[in-house]
Design a protein around this nucleic acid. Structure first.
Lengths: 239, 239
DNA sequence: CACGTTTCGGTCACACTGACCAGAACTCGT
DNA sequence: ACGAGTTCTGGTCAGTGTGACCGAAACGTG
């Protein structure tokens, strides 16, 4: 019995698996929530798309592996981008060739991130993923991606993570459009402003105003990230 | 560049690590939040305590490995107990002998679970873990355990997970004492009742009353779990 | 200069919460 | 049997947060 509760001494009995890292990289652009997909090298997966899967180096922490994928694919580095572990997928039947345990990460990159010129990688609107004419996904990424999207939608509620999608300074309208794109809803501008302003530490006003768009409009104040990471009270999704 | 974003074809370049599962099993007893710790077999870790680490069988999903630990150590089976993945700890320096990636699980078992007669495993009050005279922990479990406790405390806010700590039927006072033990606070009985009753699908009243305790008191109504898994609105921690 | 657009400040009704009170229904000690 | 203590249960009241909505401020365009 005791050998069932701690087996680290008998190393031969500890499973050895291939360990991979999958990165679900999200950004907001043009009012849409986008996910970065790549074309796998494997010829058997021709026509399918997959999450970036950077190589895990032997002397590299898993977090660093995911960070490296961010830097190489989108040119963003911490703390500019947000990166957090999503969960680990270890089903025995994930890969028919060998047992692969993959640690999935969720990355949020600022709007307007310049994607490096890589024809094998492109951002896809997440609303097109469910459609029948959407891209076919490799591995079990069709299960990982909804988890990543739901995590992002959920974290916008009780954390200040939405600021990871915008630049160093931003207007409240830009921040509001992040919430609208991620949640797929439209929010009342006045109520959103009141909520954000009344949440201590969420945003801090900075000098300068934003130029109105082509259609005109009053110049907007600019803000930067505050020190808060948790929102009290939370900003709950409608309905 | 492309070989950096998808390496599954070149299997030799995918790291192979020892994969372990650590289970943080929590229960509530006597108004205290308890965590199950075992004595590792490794003689080098004599005097230290650790989370149960069941062997990962080659043909076994990680979830099943954690479920097996629940059944063998506490005699509880799904869906009686709640089990969910916590996160994966993959730092290169975790184990000096070899690289070990461990997937941590959080398990919540009902109050009064009969622990199997195993002298090497016992429940420890989580409030004693931080104390200087508390048990010394093996591996990096001193990092995993606070994550597990915080996850449990957080999930009680927006999910109906508190019912995983009580039996099939329970009184609202028993459910309230779960919240009090996990959060380490005291809650107003009347307000707690109003909140739980007004949250649709949280609990459903059943026939029969509970006998009062030795000190007397009005007999309490009994309830069972409702169908809801998310609480709307959430039951937030005080302060 | 009129008009549409966007920002921004405010009002109002409603829902939820914490603090508190009081009655109901039991056990225990005398 | 009776009062005291305890717990359960329902209620009030003030304060807070929210959604819906209005209107003025400040811009671009025709």
């Amino acid at each position: 019995m005791t050998d069932e509760v701690d087996d680290t001494r008998d190393r031969a009995r500890v499973s050895s698996c291939a360990v991979a890292v999958d990165v679900a990289m999200l950004t907001v652009h043009g009012g849409r929530l986008l996910l970065l997909l790549v074309e796998p090298d494997d010829p058997a997966l021709a026509g399918r798309r997959a999450l970036p899967r950077p190589r895990v180096r032997d002397d590299e922490n898993l977090d660093d592996t995911a960070h490296r994928a961010l830097a190489e694919l989108a040119g963003v580095t911490a703390p500019e981008a947000h990166l957090e572990q999503l969960r680990t997928y270890g089903e025995t039947a994930r890969d028919p060739r060998a047992r692969v345990v993959s640690v999935a990460y969720l990355a949020l990159t600022p709007t307007g991130t310049e994607l490096v010129d890589n024809p094998r990688a492109r951002f896809v609107d997440v609303s097109e993923l469910d459609a029948s004419d959407g891209p076919r996904l490799a591995y079990d990424h069709a299960r990982i991606i909804p988890d990543a999207i739901e995590r992002a939608r959920s974290k916008l509620e009780y954390s200040s993570l939405a600021t990871a999608f915008v630049g160093d300074t931003f207007t409240l309208a830009e921040l509001r459009r992040v919430y609208e794109a991620v949640w797929g809803v439209s929010l009342d501008p006045a109520n959103f402003r009141r909520k954000v302003a009344s949440t201590a530490g969420f945003v801090v006003e900075v000098e300068g105003r934003s130029r109105p768009g082509p259609g005109g409009g009053r110049p907007a104040r600019r803000f930067r990230r505050g020190s808060a990471t948790r929102l009290h009270p939370a900003m709950l999704r409608p309905e």
